[in-house]
Nucleic acid binder design. Structure first.
Lengths: 149, 149
DNA sequence: GCTTGACCTCAAGTTAAGTTGAGGTCTTAT
DNA sequence: ATAAGACCTCAACTTAACTTGAGGTCAAGC
């Protein structure tokens, strides 16, 4: 990872990255071994990070909040440049993936909330009304204990 | 876990629970060792579950979809009776916890989505506009590389 | 010249939520 | 009467995402 002279000026140590992203140093190391971020080394074998790594870690944290696995985050991050700010197109390419996923999650949660509401209304888990019943529970239809668990 | 004679009639084996909840038998065992569900034994040492266990597992699955840990699910389930349908009050006591949590999650996701939107608009991560910046990144203010990572 | 702080590597440990496997029992159908 | 299928226990393995620890380097300040 050869760095232009300019980058050396603003480069960050692992400790600086950790402090500014509010994560442990060990986590920065971890993300690096996992290939989510990259660094180059000083003469003393110390890691140096481009300031753009701050953005990558910000993205990682945001994505993790939504429950996206590191494996998938890594894939999405692949479209962002390592050593410069992303272009509008690059950013869009990445965030479009999140958008769809977020929309799905929001829709999913809304359905669940709706479902809990109706359950509160009836106080039981009626099989016709309550979405908490097992969606694939076909056997129930054949048996006597069909109404109420 | 002594069972009334009536319960014996409608009791379910571990295999039946697994099939109807669409989870592996090993997971049913696991939930039991974790104390989320309970069973009694037949003369042949086979597990027997009350049909109300179906509801408990349904609740577990719903809660897990929203990212709630088993530890917390167990706690919430504690207000539901093991061997009968919950009363309206019991069900409310439990689902109220989920409601709040769900609302928080939905609000959180909406904020994130909003934030990604504005990032798409600008194509960069401006510190004034973009919520993806590190919320606790105060050092940035002191330095030159404040605009853009 | 020595201690302190920041950094390095590599291996092993941790937690959650299960899964897999080995070895054994019991009941039912052929 | 024996083979298949459902069940049992217990220990060990798995994956994700880190964390912890041991042992070592290097530059700066007193």
């Amino acid at each position: 990872m050869p760095q232009p002279v300019a980058a050396e000026k603003t480069a960050l140590s692992v400790g600086e990255i950790a402090r500014r992203c509010d994560i442990p140093v060990s986590t920065v190391h971890f993300y690096e071994t996992e290939g989510l971020i990259r660094s180059w080394r000083t003469a003393a074998n110390h890691r140096r990070y481009s300031r753009h790594v701050l953005r990558r870690i910000a993205v990682i944290k945001v994505a993790q909040r939504t429950g996206i696995a590191l494996r998938d985050i890594k894939q999405a991050l692949a479209v962002l440049p390592e050593d410069s700010a992303p272009t509008a197109a690059q950013w869009q390419a990445m965030s479009r993936q999140w958008q769809t996923l977020l929309q799905q999650k929001i829709a999913d949660l809304n359905v669940l909330q709706q479902q809990l509401d109706s359950c509160i209304g009836c106080g039981c888990l009626s099989l016709t009304d309550c979405p908490l019943r097992n969606p694939g529970d076909c056997r129930a239809k054949e048996t006597v204990e069909v109404v109420g668990y």
